[in-house]
Design a protein around this nucleic acid. Structure first.
Lengths: 239, 239
DNA sequence: CATGGTGAAAGGTCTGATGACTTGGGGCGC
DNA sequence: GCGCCCCAAGTCATCAGACCTTTCACCATG
């Protein structure tokens, strides 16, 4: 096994679960922590860096190393990067998760969404309509942004940070450029906008059942497009 | 920003998304890769180690560094560790995710579960019944194992690796010792076993609707226990 | 042809030195 | 006395070099 740095990871993890380190706590200095775990600074830094990437620790140069808030949103953040590395065939599997989670999130959101959030959602969809009203030459990037923001807003409004974090990760760029190109080619961008509007209506009415169903239909449609166009050429756009 | 090692992570990630590195590919040697990314061995190793922990890379001493299969199960593995770091208040949020995902996974499993998997599920539940038949002095650890294995088997049998990976992570030790102690104190361990049996019946009948409902009820029950006992004393058991 | 040894190559670890950045306090000017 | 600036100590970030451990392939030997 890649031993020494795993010792570091396990050691720090146990220091947290045992309560010795709390959220926001500052860790001992590198040299001291290394001595305690029986490793030198090299492997120690490797382990710490890994936990930083996982969202468990946070280092501030010139200051020290701290435990993060350990909130779900923080810890599930790396999930986004992992979703991006998925091959198109697996996008179907990830969309299946969305199809289950997002309607539920929408239902929760319908019950507890605030007026401010509703106003924000309206603003997002108005931007979407402005983009579509220009005619044939649609700004695809902007359309994707609108879609992303709309879904994330609902996920957040659900009040469940775990929902929000997972949906956030899955709504991310996963095969999105290719997908939206396909949607655009089939003139379905207006359908998407209409579905978004229907979801918003349900949220405004604070009707969880309608919100759930509208969201289900919406994600199902996206899923259909994905399944139909898995075979198309890959688009390598770096972010 | 924690600069140099992030350069490494982004660099390797882009080498993968750009197709330069495929699943299973071998990376250049440390010194060469470091030279190419403009960093020395230290930060390079930090970045590589982080990607190893995320399940993206795999190092073999004396051999080289390779890209993993990049399958969802592989990449979502670290999710388990993150779930363990959650505070009890957040357990409710994680259980809400289970309540949504597991019934769907059970429905899928009902449609596609194999005879071998059904046999395995029966064996697991028989073990559970053996544990319960001894009388009052129930082996709680073994009971937790049975529960874990049963849920994971169904998640895997769903055929969706993303479902399986996320459920796997959430079914993990999250506040489980405390939870099961509460269930045991209320004499509800037999209820759990009975619910498991009902789920298995639905799977054997390949009836997705029944499987979904049975699983819903089961997880809902667990959720109730959790909500009722969040306030109890924490149990610090290291794995 | 099979088998065992041997060495090159790769990742793993340690050490020391240096740079970059943050923080807090002390000194200086007003 | 008050406030501002500057500096020095502490900390993480990086680099460089050396050595250890493990793996794999080639080759010599039986």
């Amino acid at each position: 096994m890649g031993s020494r740095s795993n010792v570091v990871i396990d050691g720090i993890r146990q220091m947290i679960t045992s309560g010795e380190l709390m959220a926001g706590s500052r860790l001992p200095v590198e040299r001291e922590l290394g001595a305690r775990l029986g490793v030198s600074r090299g492997p120690l830094r490797e382990g710490v860096r890994a936990l930083v990437v996982l969202g468990v620790l946070e280092t501030r140069q010139g200051d020290g190393t701290y435990v993060t808030s350990l909130e779900p949103g923080q810890l599930l953040e790396p999930l986004g990067m992992l979703a991006e590395l998925q091959s198109p065939e697996n996008s179907v599997h990830l969309l299946a998760v969305r199809r289950v989670l997002e309607p539920e999130a929408a239902a929760h959101a319908a019950l507890r969404i605030s007026d401010d959030e509703l106003a924000e959602a309206r603003r997002i969809l108005e931007r979407g309509e402005a983009i579509l009203s220009v005619g044939d030459d649609i700004d695809l990037e902007a359309t994707i942004d609108v879609d992303t923001e709309f879904h994330r807003l609902i996920a957040t409004a659900s009040g469940n940070p775990a929902f929000a974090a997972i949906i956030d990760a899955l709504v991310g760029r996963t095969a999105r450029a290719r997908l939206w190109r396909a949607i655009h080619q089939h003139g379905a961008v207006h359908d998407t906008q209409r579905e978004h509007r229907a979801i918003l209506d349900a949220l405004e009415a604070h009707d969880p059942d309608r919100a759930r169903i509208r969201m289900s239909v919406h994600v199902l449609g996206v899923e259909d497009y994905t399944e139909r166009h898995v075979d198309e050429q890959p688009v390598d756009d770096v972010d």
